[in-house]
Simulated scan of single mutants.
Amino acid sequence: MENNPRTTYSYGNPRQDAVFVDSVSQWVEDPETKRYAWDPYVKGSQVGGLPDHPAAVLLSLAPIPRPTEGGVREQATVR
């Protein structure tokens, strides 16, 4: 991601429901933000679930601006 932060993520399940996300990604280094994002999952996970570790990896995903008919770029809407 250092040279090109544009990333694509995908998810699918046996029913063929699929989600694709194109984004600009960056590593989150701030311990407070990482804990804020991680704590709800740790508290709700089963034994053997997510690790309760402040060094856990966290990515920040931002939508990629998309071109419009006039060629002006606008921010994509996240829903």
Rank of each mutant, 00 (worst) to 15 (best):
Arg66Cys: 06
Thr77Asp: 01
Asn4Gly: 08
Ala76Glu: 02
Ser45Gly: 02
Glu69Val: 04
Glu32Ser: 10
Ala37Phe: 10
Phe20Cys: 13
Leu61Ile: 09
Leu50Cys: 07
Asp22Arg: 09
Arg6Gln: 06
Lys34Asp: 04
Tyr36Phe: 11
Glu2Ser: 11
Thr7Met: 12
Arg6Cys: 03
Ser25Asn: 04
Gln46Ile: 11
Pro5Leu: 10
Ser45Met: 02
Gly71Met: 14
Trp38Pro: 00
Val72Ile: 15
Ser45Tyr: 00
Gly70Pro: 00
Pro63Leu: 09
Asn4Ala: 10
Gln26His: 12
Pro54Ile: 05
Leu59Cys: 06
Pro14Met: 13
Ser10Asn: 07
Arg15Asp: 13
Ala56Tyr: 08
Gly71Val: 13
Asp22Trp: 08
Pro40Leu: 05
Gly12Val: 06
Gly71Arg: 14
Pro31Thr: 03
Gln75Ile: 02
Asp22Val: 10
Tyr9Val: 13
Thr77Trp: 01
Arg66Asp: 02
Phe20Val: 15
Ser25Asp: 08
Arg66Thr: 11
Ser10Arg: 11
Asn4Pro: 01
Asp30Gly: 02
Leu58Tyr: 02
Glu69His: 01
Lys34Phe: 01
Arg6Ile: 10
Ala18Cys: 14
Tyr11Thr: 06
Gly48Ile: 02
Pro67Arg: 12
Pro40Arg: 03
Asp17Glu: 15
His53Thr: 03
Val28Cys: 07
Arg15Cys: 09
Gln16Thr: 14
Leu59Trp: 14
Glu29Ser: 13
Pro31Glu: 02
Asp52Asn: 14
Asn4Tyr: 08
Ser23Leu: 10
Trp27Met: 13
His53Ala: 04
Thr68Arg: 09
Arg66Phe: 13
Gln26Ala: 14
Leu50Ala: 08
Ser25Phe: 00
Leu58Thr: 03
Val21His: 00
Pro63Gly: 00
Arg79Lys: 04
Phe20Asn: 12
Ser25Lys: 01
Thr33Ala: 14
Phe20His: 13
His53Pro: 01
Arg66Ala: 10
Arg6His: 11
Arg79Pro: 09
Ala37Trp: 09
Asn4Asp: 14
Met1Trp: 03
Asn3Tyr: 04
Lys43Phe: 03
Phe20Arg: 15
Ala37Arg: 05
Ala76Thr: 02
Trp38Val: 14
Met1Ser: 10
Thr8Tyr: 10
Pro67Tyr: 07
Ser45Trp: 00
Asp52Ile: 04
Asp30Arg: 03
Ser60Ile: 00
Pro65Tyr: 10
Arg6Pro: 00
Pro51Lys: 09
Gln16Ala: 14
Ala76Asn: 01
Val21Gly: 01
Glu32Asp: 13
Trp27Val: 13
Glu32Arg: 09
Glu69Pro: 01
Arg66His: 12
Ile64Pro: 00
Glu69Arg: 04
Pro67Gly: 08
Gly44Leu: 10
Asp39Trp: 05
Lys43Met: 05
Pro67Trp: 04
Arg15Tyr: 06
Leu59Met: 15
Asn13Thr: 13
Arg35Met: 05
Pro54Ala: 07
Thr33Lys: 15
Tyr9Gly: 12
Pro31Ala: 03
Glu74Pro: 01
Asp30Ile: 05
Met1Ile: 08
Asp39Pro: 00
Ala37Cys: 08
Ser10Trp: 05
Arg66Asn: 05
Arg73Ser: 13
Asn4Gln: 09
Val72Lys: 15
Val57Gly: 15
Glu74Ser: 04
